[in-house]
């Protein structure tokens, strides 16, 4: 086996630049909720929503800058699977909370 550089153009993901941008954004998105929570800067519901949004944003950042979701050959079965998977994850979590909300004791 020899080396295969730039195979088909879809394997050499990203550049140093994209990794650095992703890293910096991730750090920022970690620090913001941390500061918000440590100093109790918002009232509770708003705080929960804000930090969850930050987490989701960071997920998106990592998807694009680290996992290179935009690259890869078409059709992008991996992206389709991921989206469907996230729908199911949401269903599991939201559904459990909803169903069990009435069953606490």
């Amino acid at each position: 086996m020899t080396q295969h550089q730039n195979h088909g153009g879809h394997q050499d993901h990203g550049s140093l630049k994209s990794y650095v941008i992703g890293f910096v954004l991730s750090i920022v998105l970690t620090i913001i909720p941390l500061v918000l929570v440590m100093n109790q800067m918002l009232e509770k519901t708003a705080l929960v929503i804000t930090i969850l949004v930050m987490a989701i944003l960071q997920f998106v950042v990592q998807l694009f800058f680290f996992m290179h979701i935009r690259e890869g050959e078409k059709p992008r079965y991996n992206v389709q699977t991921l989206i469907l998977g996230l729908v199911i994850v949401f269903t599991i979590i939201a559904g459990s909370i909803w169903i069990m909300m009435f069953n606490k004791y």
Binding site: I92, G95, S96, I99, M100, N103, K104, Y105
Partner: peptide, 12 residues
């Protein structure tokens, strides 16, 4: 604990 949580999960 809550046994109903098991039903909820296993039927998913």
């Amino acid at each position: 604990g809550n046994p109903m949580m098991y039903l909820n999960l296993i039927w998913m």
